[in-house]
């Protein structure tokens, strides 16, 4: 197979890039993803999951049954922020500024 063949349609990552990530030590889809961005685009690895698993399997000589799919994330399809804005009062999210006041309780983040 031509190593320049694209595997991840969204981020346009090719076989050579996946193989390079494997060569540098990554051996799970998630670890390859963070090195290459493969599977991070709008389709969220829906098309490339088994293609990448196949490459890992062949490169490392590990059976396909031992190579898990990547972590699948919410939202399960691209969703407009306007469709996510709920009516409930915000509770779990605070602002950076509200935490930065130089009072004596000195928690800090970021």
């Amino acid at each position: 197979m031509d190593a320049s063949t694209i595997v991840c349609k969204c981020e346009e990552i090719n076989i050579a890039e996946i193989e390079l990530a494997i060569k540098s030590g990554a051996n799970t889809f998630d670890d390859i993803k963070r090195l290459t961005r493969c599977g991070m685009g709008p389709c969220q690895a829906k098309i490339c999951t088994n293609l990448v698993r196949q490459i890992i399997s062949e490169s490392l000589e590990v059976p396909l049954s031992e190579i898990r799919p990547p972590r699948l994330r919410m939202p399960l399809k691209p969703t407009r922020i306007s469709a996510l804005v709920g009516n409930e009062v915000s509770s779990s999210v605070i602002s950076v500024f509200s935490e930065s006041a130089p009072q004596e309780d000195d928690e800090n983040h970021g």
Binding site: K9, C10, G41, P42, C43, K46, I47, K77
Partner: peptide, 11 residues
């Protein structure tokens, strides 16, 4: 490509 709302190729 997939015609099933998954691959995002038809944006």
């Amino acid at each position: 490509f997939c015609a099933n709302g998954r691959c995002c190729s038809c944006f």
